[in-house]
Amino acid sequence: MNVLLGLGGSDESVKTLRRTIERTTDVGDDLTVAIVDKPESKRSQDEMCQQAREALDEAGLEDRPVEKLEGDPGSALVDYAEQGEYDQLVIGGGTLSPMGKIQLGPITEFVLLNAPTTVKLVR
């Protein structure tokens, strides 16, 4: 399967990266990691690119590319997915509120409603 992983710079993104790398190692999927531009997030786009590259290299996935996407995160990710031959788009599956409620943000909603592929939410 050809998988596109879309990440911001949150802790949720780091978890999603780790889980997707585990899955990729297990089944040998093709994988492209796309880092979106979310200025408000904890890690900058450059930091997240570097972290993704290092995590892939450590897992022996040196040949899986990391791309930087400019512009509005949701539409940039959907555009990118439309231009490639991807079977699945993977994104983070929501954060937990103090109460324990699962919260899906506006980027997640945009991607779910607009992506041309199957979308996987990682919890």
């Binding site: 109460m99 409620k101 699962i102």
Partner: peptide, 20 residues
Amino acid sequence: RAQGIPPTGESRIRNWLETI
């Protein structure tokens, strides 16, 4: 249920209530 709460099953319900 709304947005995953309350959880189902006694142990998950207890765990949720004890956490918060």
